[in-house]
Design a protein around this nucleic acid. Sequence first.
DNA 1: AACTTTATCAACACCATGTCGAGAGATTCA
DNA 2: TGAATCTCTCGACATGGTGTTGATAAAGTT
Lengths: 219, 219
Amino acid sequence: MPATSKTKPAPAGRGRRVARASGDDRERAILETAERLLEERPLSEISVDDLAKGAGISRPTFYFYFPSKDAVVLTIIDRLVAAAAGSREEALATMAEGELRAGLRQALSDLYGAFSSRRAVTLAAAELRMRNPEARELWSQVMEGWVTDVTAVIEAERARGAAPPGQPARDIAIALVQMNERVQYATFNDESPSLDEDRVLDVLVDIWLRAIYGTAEPD
Amino acid sequence: MPATSKTKPAPAGRGRRVARASGDDRERAILETAERLLEERPLSEISVDDLAKGAGISRPTFYFYFPSKDAVVLTIIDRLVAAAAGSREEALATMAEGELRAGLRQALSDLYGAFSSRRAVTLAAAELRMRNPEARELWSQVMEGWVTDVTAVIEAERARGAAPPGQPARDIAIALVQMNERVQYATFNDESPSLDEDRVLDVLVDIWLRAIYGTAEPD
DNA sequence: AACTTTATCAACACCATGTCGAGAGATTCA
DNA sequence: TGAATCTCTCGACATGGTGTTGATAAAGTT
């Protein structure tokens, strides 16, 4: 077998039926069209025909490359998620190095950045998750990754006495990670009560620090 | 004019075109069918025909009562939101009476209860918000109500010296209210990383107290 | 009894999805 | 070289949803 990647064994079951020659261009064209159109309007207002037209093919031909509109978006989300996973490892590495206040800020900043650089896709992911089980499952894995890591950090901090005991670490982690998801979504989407772009990080970091390291001592 | 409510001037622009006699039954039947079907499957999998059939009428007749499927759900959400608004006032009244830890717990508990008693509708609201501007606007008002009230509470506590200064009260309020929304949704929807039904309140109250009254003092 | 209002639905127009089958062009190999 | 095979393309169709129209029946009003 030669060293050139010739047949590449079906990237995930998503993409095309077999995977080979010049149709790669079409596949890319479809993905690019989807990303471009998502900058303009929500997924629910984009039809298969729009994607086909944008890629310069007919609608039936679209189905040669992807089984559905959702599959196109899932492919795009896959890639975003892979990139975000990179951010997560990097972020956690920073946090493990002692300087925790700055570390946490850096971690949340990386997370924020990973998704803010691809708003349209992030919003589409949220929309798709509502009605597509595969998208739900994928997102679920992303969330679980973050929750697991954050749980470990909280437990480590408690173990070395830097953080006081409290509710189970995993429960706190779930609430904080979900808070970030919602707050970021609202900001990206420019919802009515939502945090300003340039305030998000300060506010989230503050709440994380208090939730992890603080205690509540009302009068 | 007699004292009997005879014509009732079009409840909100939503419901039916005019509003009178026996058609009230049909209208109720449609609303009840919608609620019933939402217990079984998501809004996106319910058709106008399903609603019509369930109410014992044909599809065109459905359009005599409501302009669309979305309008039916919006009517239902309207009522849920009105009920929740009652909860909010009650909750805030409890909090204003000094005993704050218990007060906050009671407030969040009321909020949680208002929506958990109508899970199906709450989930449908979230789904509808994704693609319907009117639903978005309605939900936006609900969120704004809570944010405004919570902001006032935080500022009052800071003013009387019970809570330390920190990020702007409104920003903290936004993040906390959005956290609750997301965490509760995940729990109702039984998502993969989500808090157990019976842990939600403890965790949320803990984070709220720390965010409002605590300070972060890492080692 | 004429007239108006309320209520109903068959038939239609429209749009989106996804499939089928007939081919066109390139590549393989006999 | 030419037949077989594979990749790629699309017209035509089947299906299923939305929303509208117009004819009509039944109730209420004058």
